[in-house]
Structure formats: structure tokens, C-alpha cells
Design a protein around this nucleic acid. Structure first.
Lengths: 304, 304
DNA sequence: CCACGGATGAAACTTACTTTCATGAGGCGT
DNA sequence: ACGCCTCATGAAAGTAAGTTTCATCCGTGG
């Protein structure tokens, strides 16, 4: 029996919609039409019968069922119930904040601020909700026991990669980040069993990062992918996949929310690693903090 | 046809459970058994099929349907959906999440994730709330009209500074970031009236950044400070002060939340600037996006 | 003892959901 | 270019869920 591509949604009590929008690009055209309807108005979808929804999406019931399975549900009734639950939980954003949408042309700055902050905060929360603690645990394990950790990322994700590297370094783990692809490839070639390679890419399609991760994997390193899209190319070269949950939006606003989500995930991993050896991590952190102390002016804390 | 006692529930969106328990005594014995199951665990009831529920209530499907009608529903599916929605809504808010607190030593990864995400999201939201749109507007004005923009930041804030620089650059503004203090000082010395200098520092006490900003101000540039502490040294050398609102926590976790908040503020400024000249910004963004397109691998759909 | 009416479940029936399968489009190697 | 293969897709068959009908049962009051 052919196994249908089913990505578990069981461990995320709150993030079905997000989960679906993340998978959207990996669905077939007909399923995407269904997905879009569902994401656009979950409550409405929950009210519809399968035939009704199929008609609305201009497809057959069979496709709707396939869609259900693709997003990890057993069948249509289950989807319906989850959707209803989710729609209920979802507190409507107070005003006309364009949730995940673009900033309207005539918006004033106050509106812009509200919209951006709303989407950013949501991305962080929803990412946390759908993050699989079991996978994180495994990644933390790998990092804790790693001889060496390479973190890869290009462009915007490069900042995150660099941040992660710095964090790990500060608690005494041997971690590297390479702004340059060639250097990164060289480094990846030198990895081996027991080492860890982390690739960060919002879209999951950045060839540089995918290539480097592939190289690392070929050398026997454990590979970790951090991306917004659970079925993008990068996930195929990763042993562990961690996903962020920034809603797909326009190029720019999605990028920022995604960045914040990535940072949150990275921070979680960092704290997870640090928690494994509190004493040592604390000491390392204090030492590094002290090192920059002379570069502070005035009294350290000056709360208002 | 005998009219069953049907009491409308349509006008009370939130209180279906209450509604049901209210008219419990007026129901027939078999219906009461059903009602009790439903009230006891709505979420569970929503998961059951009508046959299943009937069996659990030791009655027939017909009675369950009668029950549905008695409480004002059209049929079983409708009841199911309402129950799911209601059960979801009554999920209690954030459990033992240590609001703004530190991670307890024995915490497991799931707890760590929840705590971090909660604090991060809060920092973003609260920052947006206290951000003064008027000041932002002025900063945006200054940037839009600037001949040149220098962004300063050290350590962790350096990432944010660099990010801001990159963003501005991508929409065609002349912006610089210097990882090195001396270079930054040199650059600041070359600023003049009509230029803008942005200094980013979580604590507001990073001497490097303060110094550079001071230099910039002395040369006549408009100075902007982005910090978590409204009365820290950096605010004394800034014409415009923007504050983040990361709760004071331990050294490390505060830093991350603050970073996210900083990024959000930076993003708001960026969007504000971009909004001033939509057409040009859009064109610039598209051009830059296109530039990296060849570095993407088959962004089409991928199977697991 | 016999109507009578309401409550109830068995079974018939309808609708919704699920599976199977044939078709056709698009990609890939020869 | 050709044929092969894989995959997406909807029609239709099949199954299960939900709904209606109706006969039965039980208690009640004549």
C-alpha cells in the first residue's frame, strides 16, 4: 500500500491553521484550493459538508479527503472539529489589523506598528505551539554531545545562524558560522560522525545552505534544518527538522516574522543546551558578561 | 407532527453548555443521560460519533437526535461543532508559565519553549504598545530625508544594527553599519547636518555605541537611540529615543526578548520608510529578491 | 380492562463520508 | 521524438453516519 504523505499534526493542539499554511506549498494544486478556503475562513469551512467544501474548491470530495490526510487528520469529520475548535479559540484581532496580510497603502504609522507587532508576536507564539519538543530534545542531545557544531545560513537567515553560533560559543561549545559559502563547504567537508550541522533557511530552498548541509550529512554529521516549510528541499537533507510558523505573506513582512520565529527557536535550543549543564553554562556566561563590562558606562542597571 | 420542545440556542453564542444544563431537568430520562455526558466533557463528546455517543448514554441514535433538537440544534453534526468550539474556548489561559520569570531548574523542554515564547511574544507586543508613533514618525522623516544613515550597535545589538542597515540599503537608502568601533567613530566624524545616526543598545550603557552616537551628534547629525532603558546614558546623547519593553529578567533571557523587540521596532521604522515611497521601495525589493533567485533550488512542491 | 399519550429503540432510509479505479497530463529516460 | 512511468484527479462504487418512521412499551386514567 502506498503510504500517503502525512505530516503529523498531533502534537500541536493549537496550530492547525498554521500547520496547514506551512504545508500549503507542498500540496497539489487541487488540495491547495481546499487549503486556501480552509485557512481563509476556518469557521466557515467547519460548517460546510465535505461535498459543499469540495464544490466551493472546485474539486471532488476525494481531493478533500486527500487534503485531510495530507495535513495529518484521519478524515473530514475530524478536520471539521479541529477547525471549529481552532476558529473558536482564535480571538479576532481587535481592529482591522491585516492578519498576515500586507500593510494597506494609506496606513499611518500607528497602524503599521500594530500590524507588524501583531504578526510578529503571533509568529513567535504559533511557532512555539507547533514546535515538537521531542525533536528539540534530540537536537539538544546532539549538540550537547557534539564534537563541533557548524551553523549555516545565508542572507537574513545568516544573522540567525551567526547568532546561534555566538550563543553556543558563549557557553563553551565549539561552534562555527561562515558567511561565505565556500568556506562553509570546506568546513562541512571536515565534519564527521558526532558533529552537528545546522542549516537555517526560511524558504528551505536556499541552494547554498542545502548544499552545505548535504555535504555535512554525507560526512556523517547529524543535520538539523530550521525552516518555515516542512517539505522544502532542505528537509530532505536533514535528520531533524524544526519548523517556524510565520504565516506566508508578502515577501518582506513574512521575512521579518520568520526571523523572529527562527530566533525564538534558536533561543529555545540554546537554553535547552545550557540547561544540561547549568553550572558550566552559568559560569561561561558570567565570564563573557564580565569581559564586556569595561565597555559599559554609568551604573549597570538604571531602571526607570 | 408532534413538535418537540425546542429551545433556541442560537442567540447565545457562548453558553451552549450552560444552556444545556439549564434545561436538563426538562428533558426526558434518556435525553438526560445524553446531556450529562455532553456537559461532563464537551470536547470528548465532540469527538464521538452519534452511534458512539448513543451507546455511551445507553440509548439509541434517535434519542441523541431528539436531544439535539431539544437544545435547539438542527442535528448532530451541528451540535458536534458547537461543542468543539465551546470546549476550545474554555481552555484556560497560560498555565504555569512563569511570566517574565526565569526558567526553573527542573524544567523540561516543552516548558522551556512555552516560557521563552511567551516572554518573547509579550516583549514584542508590549514594545509596540508603548512605542510612541509620533517619535517614530519623526525618525522616519529624518531617515527619509537623510543624506546618509549610520547604524551603530555592538555585540548582540550589532545584529540588529546590521539588519537595519541591510534593510535600508535594500530600499535604496544610503546606510552603513560598522562592526568595528574605530571605523564607526571615523564614520560618525564625517556625518553632518541632515544625516542620521542610530544607536542600538539593550542596556543603553554600551560605551562604544554611546561614544559614537555622541560624536555623530556633535557633528550635527540627528541621533536616534533604541534601548530598553529610557533613562540610560545613551538617551542623553539622542535626539529621539525609542524604547523596547523587554521585562527585566535574568541576563540571558532578557537579552533575547529584547533582541526580538528591537527587531520589531526596526521593522516598523523600515516599513514606515518604505511606505513613504511605495513604488520605489517595491521596485528595489523586487530587484533584490530577483538577485538571489538563482540561489534557490526547485521551490516547487516536494514529497516526503 | 381498555383506550391514550408519551418515551423509546429497531429498522428503513437518506445523506455524508471514504475508497477504488480509470483516465489523462506531465516529466524522464532512451 | 517516443514511450514509459508517476502522479493528480474525479467518477463512481461502497461504507458509515445521521435521520426519519413507526411499532412497541409502559404508565395513567377512565
Amino acid at each position: 500500500m502506498a503510504k500517503s504523505p502525512k505530516i503529523s499534526a498531533s502534537h500541536e493542539p493549537g496550530g492547525l491553521i498554521v500547520h496547514i499554511s506551512g504545508l500549503l506549498p507542498s500540496l497539489s494544486p487541487a488540495e491547495q484550493r481546499v487549503a486556501r478556503l480552509v485557512v481563509a475562513d476556518p469557521a466557515d469551512a467547519a460548517r460546510r459538508t465535505i461535498t459543499d467544501l469540495a464544490t466551493a474548491a472546485e474539486t471532488s470530495e476525494a481531493t478533500v479527503i486527500r487534503f485531510c490526510r495530507s495535513v495529518g487528520m484521519d478524515g473530514y469529520p475530524q478536520l471539521r472539529i479541529r477547525l471549529a475548535a481552532e476558529a473558536a479559540r482564535r480571538v479576532e484581532p481587535p481592529d482591522a489589523r491585516v492578519v498576515g496580510g500586507d500593510i494597506p497603502p494609506g496606513a499611518d504609522l500607528a497602524q503599521i506598528i500594530a500590524t507588524i507587532a501583531f504578526n510578529d508576536a503571533r509568529a513567535v507564539e504559533e511557532t512555539a505551539e507547533q514546535l515538537d519538543p521531542a525533536v528539540c530534545e534530540q537536537v539538544v542531545d546532539a549538540i550537547v554531545n557534539a564534537g563541533r557544531i557548524d551553523v549555516y545560513g545565508a542572507g537574513a537567515s545568516g544573522f540567525v545562524a551567526s547568532d546561534f553560533q555566538q550563543k553556543l560559543h558563549r557557553i563553551g561549545r565549539t561552534a562555527f558560522y561562515f558567511p561565505d559559502v565556500h568556506t562553509a563547504l570546506t568546513s562541512a567537508a571536515l565534519l564527521g560522525r558526532g558533529d552537528v550541522a545546522v542549516g537555517i533557511s526560511h524558504t528551505g530552498t536556499t541552494s547554498d545552505v542545502v548544499e552545505v548541509l548535504e555535504q555535512a550529512r554525507a560526512r556523517g554529521a547529524a543535520t538539523v534544518a530550521l525552516t518555515n516549510f516542512p517539505r522544502s528541499p532542505i528537509t530532505e537533507v536533514a535528520d531533524f527538522v524544526l519548523t517556524t510558523a510565520a504565516r506566508e505573506t508578502t515577501y518582506r513582512s513574512g521575512a521579518m516574522a520568520s526571523r523572529l520565529a527562527q530566533l525564538t527557536v534558536v533561543d529555545c535550543l540554546f537554553v535547552g543546551v545550557a540547561a544540561r549543564n547549568r553550572a558550566r553554562a552559568k559560569k561561561a556566561l558570567e565570564a563573557t558578561a564580565e569581559a564586556v563590562q569595561s565597555h559599559r558606562v554609568g551604573s549597570g542597571r538604571r531602571r526607570a
